[in-house]
């Protein structure tokens, strides 16, 4: 399928989803706020903690807030645009995947755009506000390569998160229970990216750099931006990591699809 057609379909699906969401106004508004509330509580946690202690391993509070805020932002983009992947388990369990397979459009595109997360909007807004505040309280020596890196980071981080969560949701092809916590567990592992990776023991460091490369959405870019370590330029590997994750997620999906048989009669 041509890229332009994919983009066209994507924008149409998105527009339809926004209309659906606006039908349930109370829910829409609550979703918008709930994402922000959770984030602000995360920042309050850091505030309370840092009021008692000196910087953790040389990281000040606002530096960590910047990592958090950038993760909130990409999380917002992902949940706004690709929330549909969180419906895979239900689609399989109820057999609704059938109609996606019958249409002449990539099933992956249809799944990703099956739903949108209104909370994503809240996440993006709070993420940006927090980023601005954090940037005003931290020192970054802006060089041209660092400025150039920002859009690269946003796209790669969103792709990494989407790919990992998508692949995790494909576990529904193997675990057929209606309530499957595995994707949520994988999603939660991004918590490790919110703090400096060096806090953790080596197996965990290896895990979040190599197995589930969440380190590339928060910690490693922050090391680079803040000039913390000489190896910071490794942050430029993020696009490669993103491509790798997307390829794996695709493979997992088609592998799972081979196992799929409609539960119907």
């Amino acid at each position: 399928m041509r890229l332009s057609r994919t983009v066209f379909l994507f924008s149409r699906f998105l527009a339809q989803n926004i209309k659906i969401k606006l039908e349930y106004k109370a829910d829409f508004i609550i979703m918008l706020f709930s994402g922000s509330v959770l984030q602000l509580l995360g920042v309050m946690f850091l505030g309370v903690l840092y009021s008692r202690i000196p910087p953790i391993q040389g990281w000040t509070m606002w530096e960590i807030v910047l990592i958090l805020a950038s993760i909130f932002f990409t999380e917002g983009v992902v949940s706004f645009a690709f929330e549909g992947m969180w419906r895979i388990v239900r689609l399989i369990n109820l057999g609704d995947m059938d109609r996606f397979l019958l249409r002449p459009v990539s099933p992956i595109l249809q799944i990703l755009t099956y739903d949108i997360g209104a909370h994503g909007i809240g996440n993006m807004i709070t993420g940006v506000i927090l980023c601005v505040i954090a940037l005003s309280r931290t020192e970054i020596l802006w060089t041209w390569d660092r400025i150039l890196y920002l859009p690269v980071l946003i796209v790669s981080a969103a792709a990494i998160r989407t790919a990992i969560s998508f692949a995790a949701n494909c576990s529904g092809f193997w675990l057929t229970s209606f309530y499957n916590a595995f994707p949520l567990m994988v999603h939660q592992m991004a918590d490790f990216a919110k703090y400096p990776t060096t806090l953790f023991t080596e197996p965990i460091q290896f895990f979040i750099t190599v197995v589930l490369p969440y380190a590339f959405i928060g910690y490693i870019p922050a090391v680079y931006l803040f000039h913390k370590q000489p190896w910071g330029a490794a942050a430029w590997l993020a696009p490669l990591v993103a491509v790798w994750c997307v390829l794996i997620a695709r493979a997992v999906f088609y592998r799972g699809l081979r196992r799929y048989d409609s539960p119907g009669n």
Binding site: Y24, M31, F33, S34, V37, L38
Partner: peptide, 13 residues
């Protein structure tokens, strides 16, 4: 509200 997700997040927070 019809949907339970946002409420559940608020509650959890």
């Amino acid at each position: 509200t019809t949907g339970g997700m946002g409420l559940s997040w608020l509650r959890r927070g």
